[in-house]
Design a protein around this nucleic acid. Structure first.
Length: 167
DNA sequence: CCCTGATTCGC
DNA sequence: GCGAATCAGG
């Protein structure tokens, strides 16, 4: 696999969209192992794994030892339920960021539309949907497109450069 | 057996 | 750095 900058961007994008590793692999014509391996090396946000090798296993096994100091445990509230979000949808919903994004409290089950900074901003998704960290690219969208130049180049795949997903 | 993602380790 | 093999869970 030639991890060109574009390939990496594509991986990031698909990852951010919440696709499974196997699905990303299928889309890019590589194995899921390649995907997860690269994602891991890129330090992409890990999505809820069906397993945990050490901590959770030990944690669940041990009800609650003592661990007074170690309470710094990442109280990850992130539900991150495999978002159905078709992220790069050119939605023109100019919903203003009304209420501040709550972080600890569980968000309402309703799927609110993604909101970018403003209608002129790139709507390329950054990070893991469903997490407080999730945001949109803050670059300015390019000439009427919903994305900035960089992301438009990825979103609008050039026919000649599609070797990866030539399915 | 199908799926999921994470880690390991030879390359 | 890469990713198949393997692990571990659903």
């Amino acid at each position: 696999m030639d991890w060109s900058a574009e390939a990496i961007e594509q991986l990031r994008a698909l990852w951010a969209e919440g696709h499974s590793t196997a699905e990303i692999g299928r889309r890019m014509g590589i194995s899921k192992n390649a995907v997860v391996g690269k994602a891991h090396r890129l330090h992409l946000p890990a999505r809820p794994s069906p397993i945990q090798r050490e901590q959770a296993a030990a944690a669940s096994a041990a009800p609650r030892p003592v661990a007074p100091a170690a309470s710094t445990a990442p109280a990850v509230p992130a539900p991150a339920p495999r978002p159905v979000a078709q992220a790069p949808a050119p939605v023109e919903s100019v919903a203003r960021p009304a209420a501040p994004v709550l972080r600890a409290a569980p968000p309402p089950p309703v799927v609110r539309p993604f909101q970018r900074s403003n209608a002129r901003s790139c709507c390329w998704p950054i990070g893991e949907p469903g997490t407080p960290e999730f945001r949109f690219c803050t670059s300015e969208a390019f000439a009427g497109k919903p994305y900035c130049l960089e992301h438009a180049s990825i979103a609008y795949v050039k026919a000649r450069d599609r070797r990866e997903d030539a399915a």
